[in-house]
């Protein structure tokens, strides 16, 4: 780790102004990726602005329309929230399945979504549940937020403040974990939204989270496992590595989607 200045932000606005003051400053939103990168000397921010003390980035709000998670909601906090469990059970379950206990106690939703790791779980929830990402400057629809590998619609200096998840009729997330890292090798979130539309969001399989239109259409016609069981996803463009070649990942998308539908109906 290289030397850096540690700063604490008292609010989102304070964080934004501190961020603007230093060219090489980075935000610390749990640090489960950032600290590891710094220890490996792969990242060398001049300043690290800790968002832990920014009160307006914390808090879980649940109402009739949905759940709004403050950006600094720790995964463990979301997982054990009775309100979230009741309103959008898939969200609590997904958060409870991220990394390990230590990661869940430190890692935050905002940190995960802003980093947009191709194998992260939260992007599947944001896209699959048609959430809205609220930032210090605007609100961004999920479909417009995830642009590419580690790339989002966030502008320099823009900070996620919260994410609003509308209540779904039913939803489930199925994750095939990478045997070594336990990240999502293929994670599929299937949701039937309040208006009856269906979303199938896939994380881990491609460079960035994506939807599978053919599956969504089939499930809108018939929300059953059989509806997706024979829908194949093209392997082209999917990730390939020693753990899973693209064709295997493509196959797993179908299997996980089917199992997610089964779980959503259970």
């Amino acid at each position: 780790m290289y030397a850096f200045r540690y700063q604490t932000a008292s609010s989102a606005a304070d964080a934004a102004s501190r961020l603007a003051a230093h060219e090489d400053a980075k935000l610390l939103a749990g640090g489960q990726t950032m600290i590891a990168s710094m220890k490996l000397r792969l990242a060398s921010p001049s300043d690290l602005i800790d968002l832990a003390g920014a009160a307006d980035l914390h808090g879980i709000t649940v109402d009739a329309k949905g759940v709004t998670l403050g950006a600094m909601s720790r995964h463990a906090e979301v997982a054990r929230s009775a309100d979230v469990q009741k309103a959008i059970p898939v969200l609590a379950k997904l958060a409870g399945g991220i990394g390990d206990r230590m990661v869940r106690n430190m890692g935050t939703m905002g940190g995960s979504v802003a980093n947009n790791d191709p194998a992260a779980d939260y992007p599947a929830a944001v896209l699959g549940l048609n959430a809205t990402v609220n930032t210090t400057t605007c609100s961004i629809a999920a479909d417009d937020f995830f642009l590419g590998m580690y790339e989002t619609a966030l502008q320099p200096g823009e900070i996620i403040t919260s994410i609003s998840f509308p209540i779904a009729k039913r939803a489930a997330y199925m994750k095939f974990k990478n045997p070594a890292s336990r990240y999502a090798m293929v994670g599929v979130l299937v949701a039937q939204l309040a208006d009856g539309s269906v979303r199938v969001a896939v994380t881990g399989a491609g460079p960035v989270v994506f939807r599978v239109a053919a599956m969504e259409k089939a499930l809108e016609a018939s929300f059953t496992p059989a509806a997706v069981a024979s829908i194949k996803v093209p392997a082209e463009g999917l990730n390939s590595d020693i753990h899973a070649q693209a064709d295997y990942r493509a196959h797993l998308i179908t299997v996980m989607a089917k199992r997610a539908v089964e779980a959503a109906l259970a």
Binding site: N178, P179, A180, S181, Y183, D241, I242, H243
Partner: peptide
């Protein structure tokens, strides 16, 4: 070494 970390070397 492709499997140079626990992300790739499966303990």
């Amino acid at each position: 070494l492709t499997t140079g970390t626990f992300l790739d070397y499966c303990m």
